[in-house]
């Protein structure tokens, strides 16, 4: 069964669980995620905002990247990565279960907390980790709601959860105290990392990271992102203006009989149909507008083949982003180690 719709992910999970289905509940949007159920019980959950079992085990150094990659290579096809790690003696059953339980509740918070998101259930899908634990979906849903409340009790501002983490430059008081996890976050917040970046970098649960960040915000130690009045408008397309686009609409007179078939039936008052785009003219550099003037774009200076860049262009070095690069490089390093 595959159904795609916009709904409350938690409600669909309850429905799927009630029908004792097996598959993956894929939640879109930001951050989104997926919850895997086996015969109505939750066996795994993942989200881009929550480090998974692999990230938790390798970032902490509990498993070498190579060990993890080996288990993935061997166990993915049979969906028994977790069992292999225990059988080969890399992890105890207790460690694996606790790690998976932590990862499930962590990812479920991000996947299931939105009240409304594009949700899709992929029937029959299984997770490569294999069934390690079986959790009651109702308990997961209850815990997700409780965690959301906990955060708001600490500091009721959800911007902290996603905005780039920037500690304030000057503490608001003479004496401040931070816990060890908070210290780690402050030290690694380089003005570019988001809470999710920090969670992956440090191998900490995404929710625990947000929780500490809200505590820091409540203590006045974080710069809060500026309040935006309205939803940001990322791209505004230019409106078609009289002289820019040559639009010739046929004059419609009531007595004209239609020359094309007309769809009859109730039709909502739709806006005017989009203006017919003019057919691409063969000469792309020239466009004749409605009033007959010819538009010629300015000619760009061209370099001869093999010529060097002009000094003012070549001299600029691309801006350095140490933070993002470091995360990326660490991931590449882990992957390369695994290949050795």
């Amino acid at each position: 069964m595959t159904s795609s719709k916009t709904a409350a992910p938690g409600r669909l999970l309850a429905q799927v669980a009630g029908e004792r289905q097996t598959g993956a509940l894929v939640v879109g949007g930001h951050p989104g995620g997926a919850v895997y159920v086996l015969e109505g019980r939750v066996i795994y959950a993942e989200s881009p905002a929550a480090p998974g079992v692999g990230e938790l085990l390798t970032a902490s150094g509990r498993l070498a990247g190579r060990t993890w990659q080996n288990a993935l290579d061997r166990g993915t096809s049979g969906a028994q990565v977790g069992r292999l790690l225990v059988e080969q003696g890399h992890l105890t059953q207790g460690e694996l279960e606790l790690c998976v339980l932590g990862a499930i509740y962590d990812a479920a918070y991000f996947a299931l907390s939105p009240a409304d998101a594009p949700v899709e259930f992929l029937g029959g899908a299984t997770h490569w980790l294999g069934p390690v634990v079986h959790v009651d979906p109702a308990a997961v849903a209850r815990e997700v709601r409780r965690r959301a409340r906990l955060l708001d009790d600490i500091f009721p501002d959800a911007r902290v959860d996603t905005a780039i983490v920037s500690p304030i430059a000057r503490p608001p008081r003479e004496r401040i105290s931070v816990t060890a996890p908070q210290w780690e976050l402050l030290v690694h917040a380089d003005g570019q990392r988001t809470p999710a970046d920090l969670a992956f970098l440090l191998g900490k649960a995404g929710y625990a990271t947000i929780q500490e960040l809200r505590r820091l915000a409540a203590a006045g130690l974080l710069e809060l992102p500026e309040v935006r009045g309205e939803a940001p408008e990322f791209v505004r397309l230019p409106r078609a203006r009289g002289t820019a686009v040559d639009v010739r609409r046929p004059q419609v007179r009531p007595d004209d009989s239609p020359t094309v078939p007309v769809i009859t039936g109730v039709r909502p008052a739709a806006p005017d149909p989009p203006a017919p785009t003019p057919a691409p003219s063969p000469a792309l550099t020239e466009e004749t507008s409605a009033n007959g003037t010819v538009y010629r774009p300015p000619r760009l200076a061209r370099r001869k083949p093999g010529a060097k860049l002009p000094k003012e262009v070549a001299g600029e070095t691309p801006p350095a982003h140490p933070g993002t690069d470091e995360v990326l490089l660490k991931r590449i390093r882990t992957a390369l180690r695994a290949l050795r």
Binding site: L57, S60, G61, R62, L98, C99
Partner: peptide, 10 residues
């Protein structure tokens, strides 16, 4: 307190 090598607070 259960001390795990990976991040958990159990």
């Amino acid at each position: 307190l259960v001390q795990t090598d990976f991040d958990s607070r159990l």
